[in-house]
Design a protein around this nucleic acid. Structure first.
Length: 76
DNA sequence: ACACCCTCACGTCACCCAGC
DNA sequence: GCTGGGTGACGTGAGGGTGT
């Protein structure tokens, strides 16, 4: 190693830099994919919950209506 | 057939935050 | 402080629907 350590030569540093960048991009690519997948799942869950609550609401409204009618009949 | 719009999935960048 | 992971914002290309 007459011309200094090749490990820290400018060329090596540049290669190391671009290798690190590629690795970071790759990891971030996968992270973004996973992030979107989780978000989609979360939204689907929320939509299901909305559907359930809307049904519950409908049922309760019907129940209330029936009770009101019953109550009015008694009153009359 | 073509131009135009919409939606979806993707890749990248920038930022934030937790763990070290 | 540095590092790595998660996520919002943005730009882009592909694919499908619609009006001309």
């Amino acid at each position: 190693m007459a011309s200094g350590s090749p490990i820290s030569s400018p060329q090596h540093l540049a290669e190391e830099g671009s290798r690190k960048r590629e690795l970071r991009l790759l990891k971030n690519r996968e992270a973004a994919r996973e992030c979107r997948r989780k978000k989609k799942e979360y939204v689907k869950c929320l939509e299901n919950r909305v559907a359930v609550l809307e049904n519950q609401n409908k049922t309760l409204i019907e129940e209330l209506k029936a009770l009101k009618e019953l109550y009015c009949q008694k009153d009359a």
